[in-house]
Each structure stands twice: as C-alpha cells, then as structure tokens.
C-alpha cells in the first residue's frame, strides 16, 4: 500500500524527507562508529577547534545570563522578602535549564554553521568524492570524528557555562548587596539535587550529538553550487537549534517520569 504524496504540501514533504535523511544518517553513524579506522587524532582536533574555541563565547554568554537573571529576579524576590533565596533560584534555573540550552544554542550557531559550511564546501568541491575514490572512508573521517568530538565537548562547555554563570550571579548579587562567596556557594549549590544536575548533563550529550549529526547531514547533503554551502550552513543552524528544543522537551518529560 502506497501513500499518496501528491496532496502533501512541498514544505511538509521536504520536512519529512529531511527527517528521514537525518534518521538514516544517524543509523549510518552508529554502524560506522564501531568500524576501524578510529581517527582519534581527528577527534582531538575537532574537540579543540570546535569545542575549546567556543569557550570564550559560551563563557561570556553564561556570565551575562547569570548577571542578568540575578538583577532581573531581585526586585520580585525582594517583594516577597525572599532575597536570600536568590542564589538558589538562579543556580537551579541555570543548572537545570538555562546553562545546557543556552550552551547548546550557542554551539548550534557556531559549531553547526562551521560543520555545515566545511562539509558543504567539501561536498561542493567534490573532496568527499575524492576521498571515497582514494580509499578513505569519508564518513568515518569527516562525520564520526566531528559527532564524537562535539558530543563530548558540549557537556564540558555546559559545565563551564554553568560555573561562569554562577560567578556572574555572585557578581550581580554583590552589586546591590553583600554576600560572601562561601555563603553564595552554600546557598546556590546547597539547594541543588542530583536530579537537577545529572539529567541536565545527560541531555547536553544529546544536544551535542544532535547538533553535530544534523550539521554533518546538512553539509553531506549540500546542493551543488556555491549557494549550497551557505544553505547548508544556515539549515544546519536552524534545524540543530530546533532539535535542541525538541530534545529538551523530551528530556524534561523523561526526567519528570523518572523522578516521580
């Protein structure tokens, strides 16, 4: 039995085809992941170029978000006479949600566009075809290494972003009041539970995996021509950002189910 596809709008058909392509691409990644050669050096390189080089951007964003959240929340908390709860509220918000999602979005923008453009240009210039001809497995060399590196680096970047955001919150707390560092750490981390931290860390692995996989897929399937590179980079950012929110929604539901 065949489904009639003529009646579907083109955008829906494109979406479904793209989703199917990404799913196939993920399957191909898991098949190739166990097959040698293991390009460890390439993993390190991408971990450095894609991950560590994003630290400054992620750090600045985290610092600003930590400060802004504290400054914005303070008047409301003061109305309830609960200023002492501010560190706890900020830390829970950052570690549970804002830290992982914000880092993932930053990475989706920076890493996704980089991967999409790199692989798209390689596709356009037929470098990938050349690698296949020369006997190198392009998927293992180009995709597996990037996906692995980004999957490892995004959680690490999330940890850094969380810590820097808490520093930003501490700085903002001391703009209008006076809170000792020890008291701030005690109040912010003391109110955290493992159920706050571990799910956030686990979902950031999925964020990294999704960003790298979608971006590699967009680069690998880039259209011929110079416009294909730009389109691949753009689409990589948009779809990976969308995936981040979808995974976040799923992660929240699964976490609630597990905790309760």
């Amino acid at each position: 039995m065949y489904m009639r596809t003529d009646a579907l709008p083109a955008s829906v058909k494109d979406f479904l085809v793209g989703l199917a392509g990404i799913t196939q691409f993920a399957g191909k990644f898991f098949r190739n992941f166990w097959r040698p050669p293991f390009e460890i050096r390439e993993v390190f390189y991408h971990a450095y170029s894609l991950g560590q080089k994003s630290l400054l951007l992620v750090g600045i964003t985290g610092l600003i978000i930590g400060m802004v959240m504290t400054i914005q929340m303070r008047p409301t908390m003061e109305q309830f006479g609960a200023t002492s709860w501010l560190p706890a509220m900020v830390s829970i918000s950052i570690i549970r949600e804002i830290g992982p999602v914000l880092t993932a979005l930053i990475c989706a923008g920076k890493i996704g566009s980089t991967i999409g453009a790199e692989l798209g240009s390689m596709k356009v210039t037929e470098q990938i075809d050349a690698m296949t001809v020369s006997g190198t497995n392009p998927f293992n060399y180009l995709v597996t290494t990037r996906v692995l590196a980004v999957t490892i680096m995004v959680p690490l970047l999330t940890i850094y972003a969380d810590i820097i955001a808490l520093f930003g919150s501490y700085a903002a707390m001391n703009l209008e009041g006076s809170v000792s560092f020890k008291l701030f750490i005690d109040q912010s981390l003391g109110s955290l539970l493992f159920s706050d931290m571990v799910p956030a860390l686990i979902k950031s692995f999925f964020f990294g995996f999704a960003i790298a996989l979608v971006s590699c897929h967009q680069g690998f399937t880039a259209d011929r021509g110079t416009s294909g590179v730009g389109k691949a980079a753009n689409t990589a950012v948009v779809i990976s950002s969308l995936f981040v929110f979808v995974i976040d929604l799923l992660a929240v539901q699964i976490t609630q189910l597990i905790i309760s």
Binding site: I152, L156, L157, Y160, L193, F194, M197
Partner: peptide
Amino acid sequence: FVALGVIIAIGVVYYL
C-alpha cells in the same frame, strides 16, 4: 580544558 571540566563536574557531584 577537558580535565578541568571533568574535575569541576566531579567536584560538584562530590559537594552535593
């Protein structure tokens, strides 16, 4: 970078 990130994660886990 990786070592520091892992140490921070372990430190927070131990603290909690």
